[in-house]
Design a protein around this nucleic acid. Structure first.
Lengths: 240, 240
DNA sequence: GCCTAGGTCCCGTGG
DNA sequence: CCACGGGGCCTAGGC
């Protein structure tokens, strides 16, 4: 049985470079692999960055995803999304991993000085079903039980398309007025109010402003958003 | 010299479990480590998910970041941001890695059936300086050269605070009118128009609508956004 | 701590 | 293919 011990804290003075490193990486291309290496990283595309020599963790997935992580933070320091192509080339004595995205055109080059660890993985789980409490769940809750917003409400449509975007839920109240509902699963901010306003004014064009109400439905709302909402004659309904 | 070979494609029938696995993981806690394991993942917090038994890659950083990657996609399947606490516990014969976030309260539990590989890393690069072409760069370009927007423009303020958000750039035109500029580094959409409108109307309250112009500055704009913009009497200036 | 806004956002969905 | 909007968004910056 192969010991897993060597996987624990490989001493820093052990590594591969040059031809040796290139050979190892050749086996990895197209597979799921994790690389721990001393490298330089250049990115150019919509934005641009350069990372000087440093020890980094690189993850490459067969779907074209590339992630370059440093010591801190959730987000990778540099990355490439699925669909990109990975190439192995040479720059002087250094092997270089190059990932290319077509649209928009973006390139990452990882120049490898020392490969400290390479883990090539044969099998990784794919996406499976998993439940979540999303905004859509909140909407369907209201579709089933419109009185959660207010008594006498009647649902007309969900995901209702307009020239200025899609209305989460469209309804009619007890007095026959249209009710535009915008849902937020979390704290609603200024952007949510602006969104709701766009939809309300769009509907008002056909029906008249006095015949249209707008309700922001969310578990909470920021104070500035609340003030802005009130000023526009729109409403807020707390719903968790 | 420790061979790196064992790091390459460890056969699937080699693994640690139970006590052995727990011992290995104890050494890893608090360090930067990469784990390849057969595991089950439960997440509960703002949302909720459950992943059935599967082979996954788990990255844990000393800053509390936890990332659980599957075969595809850029984003981790489950994660925890920096600042979370990681604990190692036991559930029956299974070691469990539990990561806890305080606010909002969120928990991830990774139940470990088999540890196939564990890479504990001593040193990883931290954030370094790196240039980028951001929206801020676009703004400063205009601050230095206001004629890029139009002749006779005079910059009054940048990052100008208002009760409904922060105006990217505030200026005065040749005819003494206020000019509110909203910048987008990429294609501007409906949201950008709504944002600009909020600011323009805010400034109009003090100065009168006819004394205030609003310009959306971006390399491109969607057609729906352009229509909405025109309807509101706002302007678009292409700038890359 | 709250709140705003950007991001190489990614990602799904619908036209 | 574009475009819109959500996200457990994350992250930075201001107050």
């Amino acid at each position: 049985m192969l010991a897993l011990e060597p996987l624990i804290a490989p001493p820093e003075y052990e590594f591969y470079e040059g031809d040796e490193a290139e050979e190892m990486l050749e086996k990895a291309l197209g597979r799921f692999f994790v690389l721990y290496a001393l490298c330089r990283v250049e990115y150019e595309g919509r934005a641009k960055s350069e990372l000087d020599w440093g020890l980094r963790i690189l993850i490459s997935k067969p779907d074209g995803t590339l992630l370059i992580h440093e010591r801190d933070k959730h987000k990778p320091r540099n990355w490439q999304p699925p669909g990109c192509k990975l190439y192995l080339l040479r720059k002087g004595r250094w092997p270089v991993l190059m990932s290319v995205r077509r649209r928009p055109h973006e390139v990452i080059r990882v120049v490898l000085e020392k490969v400290l660890a390479l883990l090539i993985i044969n099998q990784v789980a794919r996406e499976e079903l998993a439940l979540e409490k999303t905004e859509a769940d909140l909407v369907s809750k209201v579709v089933r039980e419109p009185s959660l917003i207010e008594e006498g409400l009647e649902v007309i449509d969900v995901e209702h398309p307009t020239p200025v975007g899609t209305i989460d839920l469209l309804a009619r109240d007890g007095k026959g007025r249209l009710v535009v509902c915008e849902f937020k699963r979390s704290v609603a901010g200024l952007d949510a109010v602006s969104q709701l306003r766009r939809y309300v004014e769009q509907m008002a064009e056909a029906h008249g402003r006095e015949k249209v109400r707008g309700i922001l439905v969310a578990p909470a709302i920021t104070s500035t958003a609340m003030r802005y909402l009130a000023k526009l004659g729109l409403e807020y309904k707390r719903l968790t």
